[in-house]
Write a protein that binds this DNA or RNA. Structure first.
Length: 717
RNA sequence: GGGUCUGUAGCUCAGUUGGUUAGAGCGUCUCGUUGACAUCGAGAAGGUCAUAGGUUCGAGUCCUAUCAGACCCACCA
């Protein structure tokens, strides 16, 4: 009893590390597989292994709360940690590091660059692990995974090959959203759109044997790459032009005039120039009318030799030069202000150029067994539930309008695509990772695609690849997982793709519930970003308020799916609450000491001796257990925590404990104190694990097992 | 162009299927307490729940419109 003395205030720093090590040593994070019980599983959204954790990652607290709750319910509970190599993101971060040393990625060959990034990532990975531990997360690190672990890579490759064999994967030279600064293409999702003020330029295109056509364009610099002109088939104004030949006003080339329904008669002059290689609509139309591709903008962002006299100019200077050339020739008619959306690189804001580049695409929406259709079904029929519900509409909308997914990236960092091109017959050999010996044409002149996967292609398979699909006992037992908890920001990037790939590969849903949390913003409600210099390091908060304070401060008053702005008073209140809770323990031990009867710690009160206030508080406690549990079942974590908070502070402490101070019948009220206190400690443990575990050790000295594996109040015998 | 969300006490926000005097934290004011806790207690002030209609016996909660703000999606030259 003496060595269990409690300090006057709860000091997280003296406690957290020791308690966490005790949990780890006891092996409590690792579930015991019991086929008679339904497991509870969460796969941690793998943080990007290119930087320390940010405050948003502390929202993983929601997961730890659910995990600890289920562990206390007696479910075999697995929370599997991991880290994401985060292909493009990490390469960008690493290149920034390089530029600080005055270097760039071009100073290294592929292998060296890869190895350097690998080392960089390993360092970050171990920092992150320690940070996750400091937050108290009861992750089973014995099962930790990294997206570039050999078994994960193998699984990802197998999926790639299967998609290919099933006809759901193809290689095509379409126009890709290409960032000339980063030197890679993106999927549609990574493209940012922004309204910009620009001009619509009206240019005269001479036509043999007819009056000239006037064409409105926002991109005169692409005129050297024009390959045709289009009008609407029903447009009376231009009927007579169809089939005739217009002249390219810049280089005099011949431009067939075709009719196509895609032309908007009421836009501009109702005549469109066709730039096969730099506009998606035009690209499609040209394909239909068998007009060839002329690339006038290169992958370096400069005009190609196809642009003739404009070769070597960047896009905007080229625009000026072309316009002044046209003005000289008298073919420039007018310009008018024009607001339109431009596509930007989400990383650097560079205007993306649609450029023709062969990429691997996953077919999404155009076949019976399309990935998206199956995913839509699983959400619609309720097999997968989304919390909060409003995001169901969001994800369904996206899934039903989805386009084919470009998974090729022209970067080094990531999983190299297991596809080889035969340099003799031009066909491709796709494998599940092994280098092929020969092409079907017999040639062994095979060269591997230099591209890597979109990082989301591998993380999209995370729920089953981490569990060892298809044969590992973990996969067989823990899949489908129970909950996927993540930020609503990545619902398309990640959640939707996990559903599609999970169902496609395993035939089962990857998770039953999707719980989405919101952003953690700065105190003014601004998004945190390095450029705004308003980033709060979660580790600083940890030092100030303890892990419990940070966890509680983030969860309290924050319902699923809503953003919150960081409020220090919330963390202060949470820290104070931990201290209040702690002091209730001190009070009880003080009473035990006062009456000098330690045996009372093991005894129950005689029901007949209970006073009215004893019965009252016991009754209220039962109701509390009920309410708190119900809220957790509905994923209303904040409600659960708040109910306990109110009860502990304003019922138990302010009223009952005050009422007990003058009483002498300690053999009655001390057992009551202990009974109520114990259940409160349990109800709070999922939220604030450290202080509760420490109290458990100090006050409930006769308990056989640590609090982390004790039974939830309503599960007691 | 389409869609979603938000607007509740001075501040930051809860408020699940509509139901008695609308809640919390912080802040403010008064008083108390230094033997559980000053990271404390007792009490108080403070809200036409954005606005205008509607449904209902009854609406912060449902419907419509308006205003203000945030965000997401989108190939219209």
């Amino acid at each position: 009893m003496k060595e269990a003395k409690m300090e006057k205030t709860y000091n997280p720093k003296d406690v957290e590390d020791r308690i966490y090590k005790m949990w780890e040593k006891g092996g409590y994070f690792a579930p015991k597989i019991n086929t008679k019980k339904k497991p509870f599983t969460i796969i941690l959204p793998p943080p990007n292994a290119n930087a320390p954790l940010h405050l948003g990652h502390a929202m993983y607290t929601v997961e730890d709360t659910l995990i600890r709750w289920h562990r206390m319910l007696g479910d075999p509970t697995l929370w599997l940690p991991g880290a994401d190599h985060a292909g493009f993101e990490t390469q960008v971060v690493y290149e920034k590091e390089l530029s600080k040393e005055g270097k760039s990625r071009f100073d290294y060959d592929r292998e060296t660059l890869y190895q350097n990034i690998w080392d960089f990532v390993q360092k970050n990975k171990s920092t992150m692990e320690n940070q996750l531990k400091r937050l108290g997360y009861s992750l089973d690190f014995s099962r930790e995974k990294f997206t570039l672990d050999p078994d994960i890579v193998k699984t990802t490759y197998k999926t790639f090959k299967r998609l290919y064999d099933d006809g759901l994967l193809y290689r095509d030279a379409r126009l890709v959203n290409y960032c000339t600064k980063h030197g890679t293409g993106f999927s549609d999702l990574e493209v940012e759109h922004e309204e910009r003020d620009g001009f619509l330029y009206y240019i005269e295109f001479p036509v043999k044997g007819e009056e000239s056509l006037i064409i409105a364009t926002a991109r005169p610099e692409t005129i050297p790459g024009d390959i045709g002109v289009a009008v609407h088939p029903k447009d009376k104004r231009y009927k007579k032009y169809i089939g005739k030949i217009a002249t390219n006003p810049v280089n005099g080339s011949s431009l067939p005039i075709v009719a196509d329904g895609f032309v908007k008669m009421d836009f501009g002059t109702g005549v469109v120039k066709l730039t096969s290689a730099h506009d998606e609509n035009d690209f499609d139309v040209c394909k239909k009318h068998k007009l060839p591709l002329i690339q006038v903008i290169g992958f370096d962002g400069k005009l190609t030799k196809e642009a003739g006299q404009f070769e070597g100019l960047k896009v905007l200077p080229a625009r000026e030069k072309v316009l002044s050339y046209l003005k000289e020739k008298g073919l420039f008619k007018k310009e008018e202000p024009y607001k339109h959306a431009v596509s930007l690189c989400y990383k650097c804001g560079t205007i993306l150029e649609p450029l023709p580049l062969p990429q691997w695409y996953i077919r999404m929406n155009d076949t019976k067994k399309s990935l998206s259709k199956v995913a839509v079904e699983k959400v619609k029929n309720g097999e997968i539930k989304i919390v909060p519900k409003r995001f169901e509409k969001v994800i369904l909308r996206w899934l039903t309008n989805i386009k084919d997914w470009n998974i090729s990236r022209q970067i080094v960092w990531g999983m190299r695509i297991p596809a080889w091109e035969c340099k003799d017959c031009g066909s491709w050999v796709v494998t599940d990772g092994e280098a092929p010996v020969k092409c079907k044409c017999g040639s062994s002149n095979l060269v591997q695609d230099s591209d890597t996967f979109d990082t989301w292609f591998s993380s999209g398979q995370w729920p089953f690849s981490t569990l060892g699909y298809p044969n590992h006992p973990d996969y067989k037992y823990f899949y489908p997982t129970s909950v996927m908890e993540t930020a609503y920001e990545i619902i398309f990037f990640w959640v939707a793709r996990m559903i599609m790939l999970g169902v496609y590969v395993t035939g089962k849903i990857p998770f039953e519930i999707v719980y989405l949390h919101g952003l953690v913003r700065d105190p003014k409600g601004q998004k945190m970003s390095k450029s705004k210099n308003n980033v709060v390091d979660p580790m600083d908060l940890l030092d100030k308020y303890g892990a419990d304070g940070v966890r509680m401060g983030l969860v309290m008053g924050n319902p699923a799916g809503s953003d919150q702005s960081l409020q220090e008073p919330k963390f202060i209140a949470a820290r104070n609450f931990a201290n209040k809770l702690w002091n209730i323990g001190r009070f009880i031990l003080g009473k035990v000491e006062e009456f000098g009867d330690e045996a009372i710690l093991n005894e129950r009160a005689d029901p007949k001796a209970l006073k009215k206030e004893d019965q009252e508080i016991l009754k209220k406690k039962i109701r509390l257990v009920n309410d708190a549990s119900k809220s957790l079942k509905k994923f209303r974590l904040s409600d659960s925590l708040e109910a306990v908070y109110q009860f502990v502070w304003h019922e138990f402490a302010d009223k009952y404990i005050e009422s007990v101070k003058d009483r002498k019948d300690y053999e009655v009220f001390i057992p009551v104190l202990l009974e109520v206190y114990k259940d409160c400690i349990k109800l709070l443990h999922p939220f604030i694990p450290f202080v509760t575990e420490e109290i458990w050790e100090k006050v409930f000295v006769n308990e056989k097992t640590p609090l982390i594996v004790s039974l939830w109040p309503d599960r007691q015998d």
